[in-house]
Amino acid sequence: MLKIDNLHAKLEDEDKQILKGVNLEVPAGQVHAIMGPNGSGKSTLSYVLSGRDGYEVTEGSASLNGDDLLALEPEERAAAGLFLAFQYPVEIPGVGNLTFLRTAVNAQRKARGEEELSAAEFLKVVREKAKSLDIDAEMLKRPVNVGFSGGEKKRNEILQMAMLEPKMCIMDETDSGLDVDAMRLVAKGVNALRAPDRSFLVITHYQRLLDHIQPDVVHIMADGRIIRTGGPELALEVEKNGYADILAAEVG
C-alpha cells in the first residue's frame, strides 16, 4: 500500500532538514501508529506525503500502490486514494458542507474516470454516513467547519473520509483537543472504515487514542527518522516511561 523509502525533506525557504531518512511500509488493511515527541517530524511527514507547498523533498521516495506520490499534485494524490485528516480542520465560510463534500467526491470520481454522483444519490449516501457519526442535517448545511466545536470538526473529517473512501488514511493528531466521548465517536467512525483494502497511518502523541483504534504496528519517530518499530505494546511503553528511555537507547 504505502511505501516510504529513505525520505528526506526540508522547508523550502529554510536550510533546515526535517525528515532525515524515513523508511516505512504500511501493507493493505493494516493500522500503523506513529508516535514521537514534539518536533520529531510527524506532521511534516503527513504534509510531505499529501503534497503541501513549502516543503522540498531532497532525497528518497514515497509511493501509494506503486504510484509515485511525490510526482503528483495534492488533488491527484487524493484521487489516487490518499486522505489526510487535519489536526486543525480549516473553516470555509460561505461554502456549505454538502456542496464541499459533493464537489470533492465528484472531482475525485471524475479524475478516476468514474461517473459523477447525482445530487439525489449523493444525498442518500451522505445522510446515511452522517447519521452513524452523529452529524445532523443542520451540520451538513452549515458552512464547512464554521462554528463547529473541536469534536464536530474532527467528526466532519471522518465524514469526509467515509465519503471519499480513500485507500490510505493519514490521521494527524486527530485526538488533539477531543474529550473522551468525542474521541470514542471518532474512533468508532474510523473503526467502521477499517477494511482489507484500506490502511491507516495514525499520528498521535498519546497512547489513549490507540486504546480505541488498535494499531497493528507502532513506530516511534524522533529527529526526522523512525527509530523504533514494534507492536501495540510499544505504545504502552511510551505511555509508561515517556520517550526518554527510547531516545536514550537509540543514542546509546
Binding site: 503534497g51 495534492p74 488533488e75 487524493a78 489526510l84 464537489t103
Partner: peptide, 29 residues
C-alpha cells in the same frame, strides 16, 4: 489562504476549482 487551498486540494478538488470556491467564500458576506 494557502492552508485553505491545500485543504480543498487534499480532498481532491483541483486547484482552479478550489480557488473558485474560495472566491465565492470570500464574497459570501
Amino acid at each position: 489562504d494557502e492552508t485553505v487551498l491545500f485543504y480543498l486540494r487534499s480532498r481532491g478538488v483541483p486547484k482552479g476549482r478550489a480557488i473558485v470556491l474560495m472566491v465565492l467564500s470570500f464574497l459570501a458576506d
